[in-house]
Design a protein around this nucleic acid. Sequence first.
DNA 1: TCTTGACCTTGAGTCCACTCCAGCTTGTAT
DNA 2: ATACAAGCTGGAGTGGACTCAAGGTCAAGA
Lengths: 122, 122
Amino acid sequence: MTGYSIGEISHLTGLTIDTLRYYERIELLVDIRRNQSGHRCYSDDDLGWLNLLVCLRETGMSIADMTRFAVLIRQGEESVPDRVTLLSKHRQDVLNKIAQMEQKLEGVEAKINHYLEQEKNK
Amino acid sequence: MTGYSIGEISHLTGLTIDTLRYYERIELLVDIRRNQSGHRCYSDDDLGWLNLLVCLRETGMSIADMTRFAVLIRQGEESVPDRVTLLSKHRQDVLNKIAQMEQKLEGVEAKINHYLEQEKNK
DNA sequence: TCTTGACCTTGAGTCCACTCCAGCTTGTAT
DNA sequence: ATACAAGCTGGAGTGGACTCAAGGTCAAGA
């Protein structure tokens, strides 16, 4: 209930402490509570938001787009349709990127097999 | 038979002209033939190598690793097992990364669905 | 009391992968 | 003859996403 320290959040999210402070600087993260001694004190909501950011980052969303999304959220309820649009577009981008990677991976596999053949016939 | 100009190769591979020259500068590409007027003249082998590089790049291999691979190739036949090792490791990395992206994408989809539910109950 | 360790801030630095610039040459079309 | 497109070089600049450094505060334990 007292919230999480930056070190705890770093462990829980996999983001470094420097990255957490950086995200706050660029306003990807706002209004983080502080305790008496000025240390950041993250809430469960903050943790939830960071976990979503990690999902977006790991699926290749740019910081610029994450920032756009964060702005939508700050605009409140009425931006929900826009948020759906943004995330849906991202979802499709990710699916395309995965398909693209799978296709190019075939080229790599063909090369591996070519080398294996070459070794076999020696 | 006369080979391809840098502009043609750019179209064929999707790499920009600047990137092609950059790859040569960092020795990802070596011994590109020149015509009488000093212009690059790429062979079919060069094109094949570039297409493989594109597969590696699009699947997320770093320039540093591509350079290592290029060095192995220049070492000749005896490096074939090492090339297989390098490419196989990359293949596994790509599969892991795709799996990771698919998993994190579920987090994004959950959020989309959450928003859609929220909109429905309004 | 004094030392650790975890935290704080501002500002600068790093790494990667290009990308752009200025000034020059060459070959083809009008 | 001249204009224009496409190419050349060496070197500098860019954008994205962090990452590090220096110097300071604060609370708890030996």
